[in-house]
C-alpha cells in the first residue's frame, strides 16, 4: 500500500499528510543528491526510499519548522555514508547512465557532457563531492551546507574550492585525451 493509499484510507493523521507534502517537495532533489554522490541509479533509488522511511519514522518527534529540509538532507548524507561503509572501500564508483529514450544528435552531445561531468564528480574525494553537489547542483548556501554536512564554514569554502579545482583538472585531462 502506498503512502497516498494510506492517507486515502484514513489510517493515518495530519502529521502524515504533512509528511506527504514533504515527500512531494524533496523526493526529487534528495534522489538527485544521492544519484550524483553514488553514481548508481539503483543505489540512489534504494537510498531515497531509505531516507524517507527514516524520516517518516522520526517525523513525529521532529520539530517542524523552516529547518525541516536541512534535517532531511542530513538523513540523506548519513544514509549515503552508511551505504559506503556497508559497501566497503572497494566499492567501484563508475557513473551509471539512467535509462532514457532514443537521442537525437544534439541530445547525444548533451548526454556525453553529462556523462563526462558526472563521472568526473565521482573521481572527487567524497567530502569535496558532497559540497560541490550541494552547492553547485542543488544551490545550497554555505551556511546551509554547514548544517547538512556538519562541517565549519571554512571547511565548506575550502572543500568547494579544492573540489572545483580537482574537477577542472580531471575535465581538462579527459578532454586532452580525446
Amino acid at each position: 500500500m502506498s503512502l497516498i493509499s494510506l492517507i486515502a484510507s484514513q489510517k493515518i493523521g495530519d502529521d502524515e499528510v504533512a509528511f506527504q507534502e514533504l515527500v512531494a517537495t524533496y523526493r526529487r532533489p534528495i534522489y538527485n543528491l544521492l544519484l550524483r554522490l553514488s553514481g548508481s541509479v539503483q543505489d540512489a533509488e534504494d537510498l531515497t526510499q531509505e531516507v524517507f522511511l527514516k524520516a517518516f519514522a522520526a517525523y513525529g518527534r521532529f520539530r517542524k519548522d523552516s529547518s525541516c529540509y536541512t534535517w532531511l538532507y542530513r538523513i540523506a548524507v548519513n544514509s549515503f555514508r552508511d551505504h559506503l561503509r556497508r559497501k566497503g572501500d572497494g566499492h567501484l564508483l563508475l557513473y551509471e547512465e539512467p535509462q532514457g529514450g532514443d537521442c537525437v544528435e544534439g541530445q547525444l552531445e548533451q548526454k556525453d557532457l553529462e556523462l563526462t561531468v558526472a563521472s568526473a564528480l565521482l573521481a572527487l574525494p567524497i567530502p569535496q563531492r558532497l559540497v560541490v553537489v550541494l552547492h553547485d547542483l542543488l544551490g545550497f548556501s554555505y551556511k546551509e551546507i554547514t548544517q547538512i554536512a556538519g562541517v565549519s564554514l571554512g571547511t565548506v569554502k575550502s572543500r568547494l574550492f579544492y573540489g572545483r579545482e580537482a574537477l577542472r583538472k580531471i575535465l581538462s585531462s579527459r578532454s586532452a585525451e580525446r
Partner: peptide, 19 residues
C-alpha cells in the same frame, strides 16, 4: 566548472512507497 555541474539534469525520482 560551477556551470558544468549546475547543468547536470535533475532526474525524476522514484515513487516513494511507505507501507
Amino acid at each position: 566548472v560551477k556551470k558544468l555541474v549546475a547543468q547536470l539534469p535533475h532526474r525524476p525520482a522514484p515513487e516513494i512507497r511507505i507501507t
